[in-house]
């Protein structure tokens, strides 16, 4: 049976999660639209929670447009035509904007791939270590020779410091 490495499993999870959130249940149709827009004044708030005058006017506009039977695309399109792309809370995934949508997931997957390859190489190298080194490591309480040397260095430094302190006193 083929085993799925943990990195791949997480990558699959990320890809599943990358789909638009189905649990982002709008409290009403107006909220579904205003929660995706930015207030066009300088406050920079998401429109659904904006309390400035411009924000309130815009919220009213969206509610009225819905009452008039306009659809989400129609309302957002009209607002974008008036205020520009800056009114969208998330850039439309097209053209250069695709970079910001794709790069985080591409980087995550690349990171997993690199981590996986590095791990595999380390595990293989470990397996290829001469048995004598393994024995030596075991003799030194499970530590590798390098690790022991490091510990020795630290110990020597601490000892030198203590002796210097004593001399000063």
């Amino acid at each position: 049976m083929t085993r799925i490495p943990p990195g791949t499993a997480l990558a699959i999870l990320l890809l599943v999660g990358a789909a638009p959130p189905s649990d982002a249940k709008p409290r009403d149709a107006a909220h579904a639209i205003t929660s995706q827009l930015i207030c066009p004044c300088s406050c920079g708030e998401v429109l659904s929670g904006c309390t400035c005058e411009t924000g309130k006017t815009m919220q009213g506009y969206v509610e009225n447009a819905i009452k008039q039977g306009k659809g989400k695309d129609q309302i957002v399109g009209a607002l974008v035509a008036r205020y520009g792309e800056v009114i969208r809370g998330a850039p439309k995934p097209e053209g250069f904007n695709l970079v910001v949508w794709i790069a985080p997931f591409a980087a995550t997957l690349a990171g997993f791939a690199i981590a996986f390859l590095v791990l595999r190489r380390w595990v293989k190298r470990r397996a290829a270590l001469p048995s004598s080194l393994g024995t030596l490591a075991a003799d030194r309480g499970g530590l590798s020779p390098g690790r022991t040397l490091e510990a020795d260095l630290d110990g020597l430094r601490a000892r030198a410091e203590a002796e210097l302190r004593r001399m000063r006193e």
Binding site: L13, P20, Q36, I38, V46, E85, R88, A90, F96, V100
Partner: peptide, 24 residues
């Protein structure tokens, strides 16, 4: 700088991109 168009990247973007990574 690249396209000459002003855009916003706010909570609607981060909720879609960062939340799945945070859940992982």
């Amino acid at each position: 700088a690249v396209t000459g168009t002003k855009i916003s990247v706010s909570a609607p973007f981060f909720n879609r991109v960062n939340v799945p990574i945070a859940l992982a």
